[in-house]
């Protein structure tokens, strides 16, 4: 009895070692890959930073080249999140807490399917269908709300503008936010939901008391993942946006994002231009990193009340 038991535990120990080794290896591998990418970007980007301002595209140095397209990237991502976050959270809540079970399942599949559509398809749809539908609304915005800088006219006649690109991006990040939020809402402890209901809460109050606070961190993570996709999305933006210099108006053609700038110019780039584009990639990499760190900080700030203790 005791012998078999020892043998069993020794076998367990080997398994432990193998597993902890494998886990360590996987962790190290990630660090190595990340480090290698960072080093590659830094080394390749360096010439763009040190080049004479006149040699850089635009003729006024790397900073004045990169800032407009970084701002453009942030605007596109912001439009996408402003639209997709409330809708995504609402869709997730509907699936997890409101819809009848059968409908919820079907809807869940549809949302997941939405995530599986290739971005080039979204781009084609945005450029050929959505843009033509948006011409008139943009004209209306320019006529009636033109005094707000973001709706300043004249509206683009093709409607291939920043706002259109942002809307396409919103549709693309929506399934990410919705399906992650749904998983998190489904995990909200039944114990606390029942507590809320037993106090006389309506369903919406129950959601506010016992589901949303629990899901806070998860919602932020979901939005950040969506943001990651919106920042890095290339194909859809490249197809939808007819790019140009940075401008405040979202309904005129203009603006550009980093990812689309790289994709559109990379095939013909050589020499310093290549280094410039890689440097743009480095900047995008840093933005994403910062966004993720900020998200983590927001989540940690509320640890004491998170329910983890």
């Amino acid at each position: 009895m005791s012998i078999t038991k020892q043998a069993g535990s020794a076998g367990g120990r080997t398994g432990d070692k193998v597993f902890s080794g494998a886990a360590l290896g996987a962790g190290v591998l990630i660090m190595v890959v990340l480090f290698a990418v960072a080093v590659f970007l830094l080394v390749q980007a360096l010439p763009a930073f040190t080049a004479a301002p006149a040699d850089v595209t635009g003729g006024r140095g790397f900073t004045s080249y990169i800032v407009p397209i970084v701002v453009g990237t942030l605007i596109a991502a912001a439009i996408a999140l402003v639209i997709a976050t409330p809708i995504g959270v609402a869709v997730a809540l509907f699936i997890s807490h409101y819809a009848p079970r059968r409908l919820a399942q079907g809807l869940g599949y549809v949302v997941d399917l939405l995530a599986a559509i290739p971005s080039v398809v979204y781009g084609a749809w945005g450029a050929s269908f959505l843009a033509s539908q948006l011409k008139e609304p943009y004209q209306w915005l320019a006529d009636n709300l033109g005094w707000i800088p973001i709706f300043a006219g004249p509206a683009s006649s093709t409607a291939k503008t920043m706002l259109t690109a942002g809307i396409v991006l919103a549709v693309m990040v929506l399934p990410i936010i919705a399906s992650l939020c749904r998983e998190i809402f489904l995990q909200a402890p039944a114990l606390h939901q029942e507590a809320a209901l037993a106090l006389g809460a309506t369903r919406w109050e129950m959601v506010r008391m016992a589901v949303l606070p629990f899901a806070r961190g998860g919602i932020i993570s979901a939005v950040m993942l969506g943001l990651g996709r919106a920042l890095g999305e290339t194909m859809a933006v490249a197809l939808v946006l007819s790019s140009g210099p940075l401008m405040a108006s979202l309904i005129r053609s203009g603006n550009q994002t980093v990812a689309a700038e790289i994709a559109l110019n990379f095939p013909e780039a050589f020499g310093l231009r290549l280094h410039e584009l890689i440097a743009a990639g480095l900047v995008l990499f840093i933005i994403t990193l910062v966004v993720n760190m900020v998200a983590r900080w927001i989540i940690n700030r509320h640890k004491e009340f998170s329910g983890a203790n």
Binding site: A195, L199, A210, P213, S306
Partner: peptide, 22 residues
Amino acid sequence: PVLVRSQIGMVFQRANPFPTMS
């Protein structure tokens, strides 16, 4: 039922104070 539950309170098997609240 919301009104019923506000008149008839309930205490559960496992203590379930809302963790996100003071």
